[in-house]
Amino acid sequence: MKRVTTLAAVATAAVLALSACGGEKQPGAAAPAPSEQKSLLSAPLGDPIQLAALTRESTKKAKSSKISMETVAGAEKNTVTGQGVYDGDNSKFSMTLDSEGKKVDVLWVDNAFFFKLGADDKAELKTDKAYVKIAADGQDPISQLLGKLMSKAVKESDPSRTLEQVSKAGKITKSDQVELNGELTNHYLIEIEVEKVIALIVGEVGVPFPADVQQKIDEKLKGKNVTIPTELWLNADQLPVQVVSDASAFVKAMGAPGDGVAKTTVKYTDWGSPVNITAPPADQVGDLTEIMKKAGGQ
């Protein structure tokens, strides 16, 4: 069942990346002049714990935004566009994943992922359904493998989570005030320690790596003090405008082939705008277990 496995892997990567997302100011009134902006923009903070708390409260108030993300891994470039609601168990996302020209529409709603199937997908999976579902409580092998991980990742995809991770696994090395896309922002340079953030994520997800995988990670990273340089831009409302993370050093340390470039840029727009995301009608959703049987487990 290569197609569903691939879709699930891509969606998981996208959702995990959303935990490092940022956003832009809500539309409406005309943008204030630079002098006005400066008076509204507080001085950058040096304490990541305080910064995380302020961003968490701002995100909780705004609650929704549109999404734009680009990941570069060597010569491969992937993009994600969509919209989301950050509300714990009630979080919802609607995304289009574009990987090497192949687009996949994905919904996260009602504690499950829904993948929209194209004509080729339907033919390969031998189904006439418009969607296939991967649920946190699903009984099929793929749902059991990825459902809970995806569920936890989505529920914790509030952009302020990045700052919480920084407070536990990194530090702010520099800050200043700069203009980005015509808006005055507080700009932070952050260094995140790879070994610490891996341990933090594994602990939060509650699913440890297999012993051999963890051993390989430990051996590759031992004594290298590998970090993930991250840039963060926050507006006057303490909402992220943009987040850029560069994992190239980590990828190279792990021995990945190619030039080792691994960079993610995430932007959000329209904070607080209405977002309407609903699950597809039940009669349009295929049962993954039955689809796997028909497809012969390919």
Rank of each mutant, 00 (worst) to 15 (best):
S151F: 00
S151A: 11
K152F: 13
V154D: 10
V154H: 08
E156Y: 09
S157G: 09
D158M: 13
P159F: 09
S160I: 10
S160L: 07
R161I: 06
R161W: 07
R161E: 13
T162N: 13
T162R: 12
T162Q: 13
T162M: 14
E164Q: 14
E164V: 12
Q165P: 00
V166G: 02
S167I: 11
S167G: 06
S167L: 04
K168E: 10
K168W: 00
A169M: 08
A169E: 06
A169N: 12
A169Q: 07
A169P: 08
K174G: 13
S175F: 01
S175D: 12
D176P: 06
D176Q: 13
D176F: 02
D176Y: 05
Q177E: 12
V178K: 13
V178F: 03
V178T: 14
V178D: 13
E179R: 07
E179D: 09
L180F: 09
L180C: 00
N181F: 07
E183D: 10
E183G: 03
L184D: 02
N186I: 00
H187W: 10
H187I: 04
H187R: 15
H187M: 06
Y188L: 00
Y188E: 00
Y188Q: 00
L189F: 09
L189T: 15
L189I: 08
I190D: 01
I190C: 03
E191W: 03
E191K: 14
E191G: 08
I192Y: 02
E193M: 09
E193G: 08
V194F: 10
E195Q: 13
E195I: 06
E195N: 09
K196A: 15
V197E: 11
V197F: 06
V197G: 07
A199L: 09
L200W: 04
I201E: 10
I201N: 10
V202K: 11
V202F: 05
G203T: 07
E204A: 14
E204H: 13
V205R: 04
V205W: 06
V205G: 03
G206S: 05
G206R: 04
G206M: 07
V207S: 05
F209I: 05
P210H: 04
P210I: 02
A211R: 07
A211M: 04
A211W: 01
Q214I: 01
Q214G: 10
Q214N: 10
Q215E: 14
Q215L: 11
I217V: 14
I217L: 15
I217F: 15
I217Q: 11
D218S: 13
D218V: 09
E219F: 07
E219R: 12
K220A: 13
K220E: 06
K220R: 11
K222I: 03
G223Q: 08
K224T: 11
K224E: 11
N225M: 05
V226D: 04
T227V: 15
T227H: 06
T230F: 00
T230M: 02
T230G: 03
T230I: 00
E231D: 09
E231C: 06
E231M: 11
L232F: 10
L234T: 10
N235C: 03
N235A: 03
A236S: 15
A236R: 14
D237E: 15
Q238Y: 15
Q238L: 05
L239H: 08
L239V: 08
L239I: 12
V241E: 05
V241Q: 07
Q242G: 01
Q242A: 07
Q242D: 03
Q242Y: 04
V243G: 02
V243H: 03
V244P: 01
S245P: 00
S245T: 04
D246M: 02
D246W: 01
